[in-house]
Amino acid sequence: MHLVKRHHKNLSRDNLILLAQQDDYHALEELIKREQKNVYASFYYLDPNRQDIPDLTQEALFRMAKNIKKLRDPKKFQSWFNQIITNLFHDEMRKKYKKPQTLSIDADTSEQSNIVNITELRDKKKLPAESTLAGELNNKIISAIHTLPEPFRVAIVLRELQGLSYEEISNITQTSIGTIKSRIARARTKLQENLKPYLIQ
């Protein structure tokens, strides 16, 4: 049994996916082990209220594990899984806020109006490393991302943290590539403004 597990640890993600699709639960377990921190971090940056992040993480992992057989091409795992994460996040947001937050910001698809800050960040918890300099910078980065309006936040998380292409992000968010391009550019400009002192070397 240990031998099997050790063997799985050396497998590529693509191979783990292929095995998991054939009911190899050790492969599925290893796949979850590898992905869970990434999923957790995604929700951490996506959700400014930072409530139920462990629950959301587990739910996303469960949906991934349950539906793994539906994924045809292991190469598309990253994009496919992020679709699950993004959908789950949007469902949660819809549950929490009666009015969808996206409405007011999506009205500016002309991309002319300024990015508005979301001022109320309720129950803002800080990371344990807060006291150190690196921890302070880390908190600044996280809150800078959290102050981005939702569509911009989603776009920058999918690009900068998940490394997805504009086309993949456009498919996940059901938005045109042009809009994605502009959202990422503007999110970066906003982050650069807020993090200016840490960017000049």
Partner: peptide
């Protein structure tokens, strides 16, 4: 670069292992 260093920090804060529960 700084976003990715932040990502590493955040990843480290997850101490639980959900793999068995999910399986």
């Amino acid at each position: 670069k700084i976003i990715n260093s932040s990502l590493l920090c955040v990843k480290k804060t997850l101490n639980e292992d959900y793999s068995k529960t999910i399986c």
